[in-house]
């Protein structure tokens, strides 16, 4: 039997695929944004602007911030106290949020909650999460007045919704059979939660809580500036937008950076400790 000679066939040319609806929408949006930006640039009134002076001033302010950070109108004690306030605000709202979220997650996670309740909880938490934290703080500021109280309630409110979702998802990873094994020994609901669920989700819950603390710290700075609730955010706002004291702005930014680095260091250590 003679083997058939191999014949080389030309690979079919790849055809240009038509754009999907989403791709077309994205391109259209980018095009529109480019057009708006272009129009804004062209119609900008720059008659009074001296570009050379503007760039020199910008460079000077940047230098003041980065190379010459210094105290301005606030003393070290005042700055550190404001800083401590912001940390306390982030910590308080995170702990409150985590505590409430744990119980709400039990009413949201599928192994524990009946389907209609789980669905209702998920929907409610999604609605709360959809509105940014700052807006919640402003909403509560109009209800209970500007100040730390509005910040505490607003930040906690959003933290609860965020952590409830995260905690419920962590709880849903625990095989129901493990919970059934504890129930089979005669344990009731809370004993099963304490001895079967908690050890399995502890690491995950602590990790989420820490992530939320980082978010709440950032939010606490922002609400200090935007909603006038005090803390280091307020000092930052006053130093930059009112006093134009860029040396103090630089100092505050360095303080925030140092704290962020410390948080990251703690987070890495904590994750290592929890996963080993």
């Amino acid at each position: 039997m003679i083997a058939k000679p191999l014949t080389l066939t030309r690979a079919p040319q790849p055809q240009k695929r038509p754009l999907s609806r989403a791709q077309r929408a994205t391109r259209l949006l980018l095009l529109a944004l480019t057009a708006i930006s272009g129009y804004a640039l062209v119609t900008m009134h720059t008659d009074h602007l001296n570009w050379a002076t503007a760039f020199a001033s910008f460079w000077h302010n940047l230098q003041l911030m980065i190379v010459h950070p210094h105290l301005g109108q606030d003393s070290w004690a005042a700055l550190l106290q404001a800083f401590a306030n912001t940390i306390a605000l982030a910590m308080l709202t995170t702990l409150l949020g985590a505590f409430l979220a744990f119980f709400l997650a039990l009413a949201t996670a599928r192994p524990f909650a009946p389907k209609p309740l789980a669905l209702a909880m998920r929907s409610l938490m999604a609605v709360i999460r959809a509105i940014p934290t700052i807006l919640w703080v402003l909403v509560y500021a109009t209800v209970i007045g500007l100040g730390n109280e509005a910040a505490v309630v607003g930040l906690t409110f959003h933290s609860v919704a965020y952590l409830t979702k995260a905690f419920a998802e962590a709880m849903e990873t625990v095989p129901p059979a493990k919970l059934a094994a504890l129930r089979a020994t005669g344990c009731g609901f809370w004993l099963t939660v304490r001895h079967a669920l908690w050890p399995e989700v502890r690491a995950s819950l602590l990790s989420w809580t820490f992530i939320r603390f980082e978010i709440n710290f950032t939010n606490a700075v922002a609400v200090g500036a935007a909603a006038g609730t005090g803390g280091i955010g307020y000092n930052l706002f006053m130093a930059s937008a009112f006093n134009f004291d860029f040396q103090e702005v630089g100092l505050i930014v360095y303080l925030l950076l140092a704290f962020a680095i410390c948080l990251e260091f703690v987070a890495v250590r904590m994750r290592k400790h929890l996963t080993h």
């Binding site: 059979a177 094994a181 504890l182 020994t185 005669g186 344990c187 004993l191 399995e200």
Partner: peptide, 30 residues
């Protein structure tokens, strides 16, 4: 009644993050 009836499973269903002794102690919780 459940406390009077022990149960063992194909997939063991132990709390893997805990020590063996802690899992055994779970037996007296009920």
């Amino acid at each position: 009644i459940r406390h009077r009836i022990g149960m063992i499973f194909q997939d063991y269903n132990l709390i893997e993050e805990l020590a063996a002794i802690d899992n055994v102690l779970h037996g007296c919780l009920g």
